[in-house]
């Protein structure tokens, strides 16, 4: 699947905004992504390994809840990670 990373998260992926990762589900893809970019993992995931509520995950444009991250994803699918707002 292709993971698209935007804006405030780019500095944690060395400024790559479209990243191809393996895995059969969205959750597996995110695990592969955060393994490749550990600093992104610290931002994206809480202490229990769940996606923090301040970030939204979408599969082909459809927003997923935490419990829907086990949805199947193929090589052609697109996963977006969106941080709605930051407070500086």
């Amino acid at each position: 699947m292709i993971v698209k990373v935007r804006g405030v998260l780019l500095r944690f992926t060395d400024y790559e905004n479209e990243i191809e990762v393996g895995g059969n589900t969205v959750r597996a893809g995110l695990a592969a992504l955060t393994e490749r970019y550990p600093n992104l993992g610290k931002v994206l995931l809480d202490r229990t390994g769940e996606v923090r509520p301040t970030h939204l995950i979408a599969l082909n444009g459809e927003r997923l809840t935490r419990s829907e991250l086990d949805r199947e994803a193929t090589d052609d699918d697109r996963v977006d990670i969106v941080t709605a707002v930051s407070g500086g």
Partner: peptide
């Protein structure tokens, strides 16, 4: 106001 999650991206929710 936002409650920040504490990550380096300063992500937060109202």
């Amino acid at each position: 106001p936002l409650r920040l999650s504490g990550d380096e991206a300063l992500s937060g929710v109202p």
